[in-house]
């Protein structure tokens, strides 16, 4: 399995802890926080590849947290995970940039596949940006409106 960091955000601490134990058992770099605010704070200091985000949480809810995450770290992929099967919220989440939407209770393998996919997407995105940056740095710099060809001396 590729090495990537996953942050689980859920206000259900029991669920979170068990999920983290299972993830770690599968050698996944998994961390967990139990609120939207904590997730935003965590992302300020840590690089996270994928966030698995609960929707219904006290305080900052899933959609708001998602929006903040995307502001701080646009490349981080977010998988919404909730017990609340509501299409409206799912659509809202997807529009705000979520990678996918999963329902609780989740099958661990299904979740792992989803994380792989998300990471793959993130990697491709990252690669694209790197290439773009390389292209941008390789191009001659334009310092004025005049492009000089050959030696002026």
């Amino acid at each position: 399995m590729d090495e990537f960091n996953v942050l689980f955000v859920d206000d259900e601490v029991d669920f979170l802890e068990t999920l983290l134990k299972r993830m770690k058992k599968r050698q996944l770099n998994a961390s967990g926080v139990n609120s939207g605010e904590a997730a935003v704070a965590y992302l300020q200091d840590h690089a996270v590849d994928i966030v698995v985000l609960d929707v219904r949480m006290p305080g900052m809810d899933g959609i708001e947290t998602l929006k903040n995450i995307k502001k701080i770290s646009p490349l981080t992929e977010v998988v919404m995970l909730t017990g609340h099967a509501c299409l409206e919220i799912a659509r809202e989440g997807m529009e705000a940039g979520a990678f996918d939407y999963l329902m609780k209770p989740i099958n661990i393998d299904e979740l792992l596949y989803k994380l792989q996919d998300a990471y793959q997407k993130k990697s491709i995105q990252q690669e694209k940006i790197q290439r773009l940056e390389e292209v941008m740095t390789a191009r001659p710099s334009i310092t004025s409106n005049t492009i000089t060809v050959g030696s002026s001396s």
Partner: peptide, 19 residues
């Protein structure tokens, strides 16, 4: 919704036992 969360925990715990 309220039932879903405990069920999710139960399933996770079962998964953990399985692990």
């Amino acid at each position: 919704h309220e039932i879903n969360n405990p069920v999710a925990i139960m399933v996770e715990e079962a998964g953990w036992i399985q692990d």
